[in-house]
Amino acid sequence: MSSETTAKIRLREVEKRFVSARGEDQIAVARLDLDIRAGEFVCLVGPSGCGKTTLINLMAGFEKPTTGEVIIDGKVATAPDPDHIMIFQDYGLYPWRTVLGNVLFGLQARKVPAAEAREKALATLELVGLSHAKDKHPHELSGGMKQRVSIARALAVEPSVLFMDEPFAALDAFTRLHLQDELLRIWNEKKPTVVFVTHDLDEAITLGERVVLMAPRPGRIQRILDVKLAHPRERTDHDFAVFRKQLFEEFHLVHRQAAEAAEYAI
């Protein structure tokens, strides 16, 4: 059996070009192939400009590839899909809705009957540990709590894929570590496919079963690292350090190349 039949998400020679403000043709992502298994946790890391955010936007259907295709569950993905929910760094919560109201949004969009929707939303809030805050408005919550609400809102519609675009980047270090553990717990319970963009290498190794390191100019995959460590991972373990070292070395190489290329361009 080939990997083509088992892959949940398949990127086939996906390329994204756009014209910059200065009128130059730029390649955000260059002819890229990647297969992601169902239920897999994949992290995309790389320096700024490596196209990781463009790539996740392409997968989530917010952008269309210039050439190539994104195939999810055997279908070409061309538009956002309620089965593949994106979680944003700035949460995207609706300030006029309460926490519960925000979690209900996706269910209302699906026209789930009110009583059933409410039950589901409350259960999901329970899952992320926010039952006590259900009647608060987003402006009353901390950043970490806001991101939990947005995760709950996503989980309420039971998506098979979660796309997460630097979801914890705006949080303080302690909250970030805590939410990483929470996310892993939820992932273990629900087993969605997770594509997680980050610029934090430690975060990538803590979370990802595979870490896809990307390089800029043009955006491409530099290396894919299989992190063969069982979850939950102890961030201070020897094995963790080994993977960390590998990734850091590769990352520095990418960084150096990018810096040299930039110098050359000037």
Partner: peptide
Amino acid sequence: PAVYLKVSSNFGAGPAM
């Protein structure tokens, strides 16, 4: 904010909603 509209379209909300 664009993200409000992205969320809305992601969850499959129709134009009226």
